[in-house]
Design a protein around this nucleic acid. Structure first.
Lengths: 345, 345
DNA sequence: GAATTTTTGATGTACGTAAATCAAAAATGC
DNA sequence: GCATTTTTGATTTACGTACATCAAAAATTC
């Protein structure tokens, strides 16, 4: 049987009240007594039963998630993960609210952050757009003692407590490495389609990809980046133009969303077999394209992991606890059609 | 505030005792009353507070993990994960014991399973070796009502409740796909180094790899499989011989352990750059070789995920509950040097 | 050594559920 | 309608911790 507070009291020959004072470092305990209790804790190997403690405290963590609106499949998947975290609220003692804001809209985001602040939550998780007013809004939250975690895309120069997302420079580098190896000795330029250079994750991926491609012994020609704003129809037009103007196109790296457009353009042109396409985020659309061979490789960040990590960090910060940095790092998944996870139900 | 049993009692206009009888389906409740209570549960959206329930029950789950001995780095990593699960015992109400057995030794494993049975645990997790006596021993455990989960390598024809590991046919296929693409138009045969054909995971990987390589338009010559028994020095000799007898060797697929031998042989021969090497499991050795370029890609199964999944399934089975199949599926991770996770502390 | 402050003990209640007991009420059989 | 069985209620204790209160004891000050 594992030791309880009663056992510590007996071992240290003090009362239960004193043990409680030491455990929850309340004042009014002499150093010698405190040491006696701490020794008893160490010898018995006591570990506080967090379930019982939480029950007794009946503490709860009101959290707010701010996510971009729109039909971006990855973001909708992210929202679904937040919803399923809501379903676990009972167990995890969280109380999660979702606020939706237009994508790539800094002032709307700043407003949403202020709205979140008014609701006085324990913490806020936000998919950031980089802009001074957003940084300022995050600063106001932090000044109020509200924990802030950036999700998916980080916010440079802000006082956020943590970034729950992947290392996007490394992700870009990975995409570049794969592109190089998949293309092998083939000639032809490589095109890059981004969503928007307003968000940090897209800028980072571009940086990593360019570095990896230029690293190559035989440097490959990279076409200028085009921005599709994560919108499928816009992306489709852009890719269509690229295909027309570059008959010798060897590869396309899509570092943002709107991959439905990329897939449609490639398939309509009948060039899906000859062009090596690497994209981000596993969605029903990108999965189908990977299976059919239109997309050659997908990089992915596990939205579920990110949401769970964000919640863990927000709770810890709300309690003034530290987090284990390494434990909260999100992996960059590589998917080929051969190692696809099972289809979600 | 979320509803409690008291709220249900009030809503259904019955006593607390009756609510308890319904919730824990104890006998002695008329159908009409039961329905009334269930309606109250539904309308209030009551969710049982598992923390409080476990506290009240003070239930614990004695579990036994049976792992192979030896210096196999992956297995030692697996053991470390089990140890860190032991550290969480308090929170998860588990009581975990580890039994070690010689690797690839069916009779020793069968004995260990019987020893586990004598200790009357709630569940057993075992890295299986395929043999009739092992199947029989698992059968005895199941007959005693003890839950059994195979870990990493499955056991054909056994009555195990679940397999906590990756789809190794898919893993082999993934390795084959990568090998094909990385080799591109290059000539030369590909060698395969296995641990032992006695374990299911190695057989499955071989099957998948062969299939993927033969799938290719230009079929590539595969050399006959050699077995290194997951032993670094044995593997080193085997690879050395392969390098000598095949000057045009294009690739090596190491589907088992003992990768230190593979790395040493390649580097001593100075052929690490020209030969495409794909191996399994991320260990300190294989990580270093991936970074230096000796190994081109690593497939990995997350030992931590496997252990946690095994524990979840064993607990659920011990309580007679079912599990969500899809949730317990373990992913096949692909690592290039670009997307390596941070070094563990 | 008396007065004051600090430290410690004893005790009770609470969190939400499980589980048991015994009495009371309701339903059933004949 | 009476005896019997089944169903329900009321109440209590327990799980391990948090937190509050009040009294008692010990240490400190002057």
């Amino acid at each position: 049987m594992r030791p309880t507070v009663h056992d510590i009291a007996a071992e240290a020959e003090v009362s239960l009240a004193t043990v409680d004072r030491v455990l929850n470092n309340r004042p009014g305990v002499r150093k010698v007594t405190r040491d006696k209790v701490e020794r008893a804790i160490a010898t018995l190997g006591y570990i506080r039963d967090v379930a019982a403690a939480n029950l007794a405290k009946s503490r709860s963590y009101p959290l707010i998630f701010i996510l971009p609106e729109g039909e971006n499949a990855f973001m909708r998947g992210l929202e679904a993960e937040v919803q399923s975290a809501r379903a676990r609220s009972a167990v995890e003692r969280t109380d999660i609210t979702i606020l939706s804001v237009p994508a790539f809209d800094a002032s709307a985001l700043a407003e949403a952050l202020d709205e979140a602040r008014r609701r006085e939550p324990a913490g806020v998780a936000v998919v950031a757009v980089e802009a001074p007013e957003v940084v300022a809004a995050v600063g106001r939250l932090r000044a109020d003692g509200i924990a802030v975690v950036t999700l998916v895309s980080d916010l440079t120069g802000s006082e956020r407590d943590h970034f729950a997302g992947v290392d996007n420079i490394a992700a870009g580098r990975t995409a570049g490495s794969l592109m190089r190896r998949f293309l092998g000795g083939r000639d032809g330029p490589v095109a890059i389609v981004a969503g928007s250079m307003l968000v940090r994750d897209h800028r980072d991926r571009l940086e990593g990809f360019s570095a990896a491609m230029n690293d190559s012994v035989a440097k490959r020609h990279l076409l200028p980046v085009v921005e599709g704003h994560d919108d499928p129809s816009e992306v489709e037009k852009l890719v269509q133009d690229l295909l027309v103007s570059h008959a010798d196109l060897a590869g396309i790296y899509s570092l943002g969303a709107g991959n439905r457009g990329l897939i449609a353009a490639l398939e309509k042109a009948g060039r899906q077999a000859e062009i090596c396409a690497i994209a981000h985020e596993l969605t029903p659309y990108s999965r189908a394209a990977l299976v059919s061979g239109t997309i050659d490789a997908l990089l992915n960040q596990d939205a579920g992991h990110e949401v769970r990590s964000a919640i863990r960090v927000l709770k810890a910060r709300a309690d003034g606890l530290s987090m284990i940095e390494a434990q909260e790092r999100i992996r960059i998944d590589i998917f080929l059609k051969d190692n696809l996870p099972v289809e979600p139900a």
